[in-house]
Structure formats: structure tokens, C-alpha cells
């Protein structure tokens, strides 16, 4: 299924026409390249989660239009029309463990696939495969999800979305509040999934290290609109601009910049591997001279 995604002048207001109307998005235009890893960054409250709800047809734009494959979504679209589209989209919400409700871990993971029409056997197979991917061991399958640790609950909830085998996987700060080890494992899982299944991944994160390391494309939100989008190298090139937007620079780039101040110029350093390679090359070079 083709899933080129395009936002065209999208605006969204929470509770429009009431005294409680809150602007969520305005004049949002950008593209999400198909089959790529796109990172969405921006300050808290900048509209990232609001945008993501448009991607799954959970809300309709107040103005403008969202194009997803051959489905065009505008304010006039009937929400029911989007049920079909949703079967191809996986959305992991912020703190997704809040969505667990079934009696057992396995049943909860089977819930999504079954809702979208999978047979009992297919759903179970998909669920078991997904649970394996998130490293939940089979002896937990029959346990209640409410007996698990916070980290395990998060994994089960993520498995519940992966089991739907989405063509578009959206992750809203999926690693928030996890330990560093757990964060790394999940990030590896997402990138592996993306490569393996050639799906489109949209990741909202505050961790620039991950953006630098994994993203093919970056979209920057500020005050409810997109202020910049492009390749990670382009986004991270202008450090002053990032500081102005209260966004971090990846640690490896900070390191390289600090070295540059001392007169050691490295090029195109965004993640730790690039930094290590270039430093190694430098050090070898010097050693050779001696």
C-alpha cells in the first residue's frame, strides 16, 4: 500500500466555536517521505501530538487537507470513512501502557489485529511474533498486563501496535521514562522494523542522538506549525537556530564543535559512529607521522 503523506495548509483547533477553543495547529505544510524514517522534533506543546492524530484519522483538520496515499482528508470527510485506512496505520501514543485492558498479555496484543479482521489463529501468530520482537518472554503471555513492570507494560503496548503489521508506524515519544538500556533496545527495534518491512516510520522524540543516528528526514515544529524540514545534516547545521528553538544539538556534534573551537576540524559529524571513525582516522594519521 502506498502511503505518501502530505499536509497542505492544515489548521486544527481544539473545541472550535466554544469559549474553550485552543489552537492546535496552523498553516502546517510538509511531506513525510514514503518508506523512510522521519523524526518529528519540537518543544512541548508545539503541536506534534496533534499532528499525529491527523495521520491516523482520529481527528479531522479544521482547515486545509491531509493526503495519505489516495485518501484525502479534510474537514468534510466522514470519520467513518477512515476506519478502513486505520487498518494500515499503527499509532503508539505517549505512555501507551494506558491502553492495556485485556485479561492476558497475549489477548491484549491480539486485540488490534482481531479488530481489523484477522482470524483468531492469524492474530495469535502476529501477537506472538510481535511479543518476541519486543522481548517479552512466552511465560508472561498468560499473565495479566496489570501485573507487569512499567517497562514491560510499555513493550506489550507497543507489541499490540506492531502486531497490526502497519505500513505506517507512528511513535509518539515511545521511549519517554524508560531506562537508557530499554530506550536503546526499542530504538533498535523500530529501525530494524523499518528496514526489514520497508515501512514508513514517524517518530516524535526529544532525543537528538536518535534523530541524528536513525532519521532520514526531520520535521521541526514550533508554536503549532512546521518551521523547518529536511535531512538531519541540514537541520543540525545551524546551531544558533536550534538554540533559538530550544532544541538540543546531538552530543557527537557538540563534541565535534568543541574540538573545532580548539582547532581540530571534523566534517559531517552527527552521530557517535561518525565521530569515532573520524577521530580514529585523525589519531592514526598523527601516529603515522611520529
Amino acid at each position: 500500500m502506498v502511503m505518501a503523506i502530505n499536509f497542505d495548509q492544515v489548521g486544527f483547533t481544539y473545541q472550535p466555536n466554544t469559549p474553550f477553543a485552543t489552537p492546535g495547529l496552523h498553516d502546517v505544510s510538509f511531506e513525510i517521505p514514503e518508506g523512510k524514517f522521519t523524526a518529528v522534533i519540537g518543544h512541548t506543546g508545539s503541536g506534534k501530538s496533534t499532528m499525529v492524530q491527523h495521520l491516523d484519522g482520529l481527528v479531522l483538520p479544521t482547515t486545509g487537507k491531509v493526503t495519505m496515499g489516495n485518501q484525502v482528508v479534510t474537514a468534510e470527510t466522514k470519520l467513518k470513512e477512515l476506519n478502513e485506512m486505520r487498518a494500515h496505520i499503527g499509532l503508539v501514543f505517549q505512555f501507551p501502557e494506558a491502553q492495556l485492558f485485556e485479561q492476558t498479555v497475549l489477548k491484549d496484543v491480539m486485540f488490534g489485529p482481531k479488530n481489523f479482521g484477522a482470524s483468531e489463529e492469524d492474530a495469535q501468530a502476529a501477537a506472538e511474533a510481535a511479543l518476541k520482537k519486543v522481548a517479552i518472554s512466552p511465560d508472561l503471555y498468560e499473565r495479566s498486563p496489570f501485573e507487569l513492570s512499567g517497562g514491560q507494560m510499555r513493550r506489550v503496548a507497543i507489541a499490540g501496535v506492531i502486531a497490526m503489521a502497519p505500513d505506517l508506524l507512528i511513535l509518539d515519544e515511545p521511549t519517554a521514562g524508560l531506562d537508557p538500556q530499554g530506550q536503546r533496545e526499542l530504538m533498535t527495534l523500530f529501525t530494524d522494523l523499518q528496514k526489514e518491512r520497508q515501512i514508513t516510520v514517524v517518530l516524535i522524540t526529544h532525543q537528538m542522538e536518535y534523530v541524528a543516528q536513525y532519521a532520514d528526514h526531520v520535521v521541526v515544529f514550533e508554536h503549532g506549525t512546521v518551521v523547518k524540514s529536511g535531512a538531519p545534516a541540514t537541520i543540525f547545521a545551524d546551531e544558533e537556530w536550534l538554540h533559538e528553538k530550544q532544541l538540543d544539538v546531538p552530543a557527537a556534534k557538540q563534541f565535534a564543535d568543541a574540538l573545532a573551537e580548539k582547532g581540530i576540524q571534523l566534517h559531517n559529524v552527527l552521530d557517535i559512529d561518525q565521530l569515532a571513525d573520524q577521530l580514529a582516522a585523525r589519531l592514526n594519521g598523527e601516529v603515522d607521522h611520529v
Partner: peptide, 10 residues
């Protein structure tokens, strides 16, 4: 938000 999460799961 729970409603949205479950709608996303079909």
C-alpha cells in the same frame, strides 16, 4: 486519549 488509542487499534 485512551479512546483515541483504542480507536487506533480498531
Amino acid at each position: 486519549s485512551i479512546m483515541n488509542a483504542q480507536r487506533a487499534r480498531g
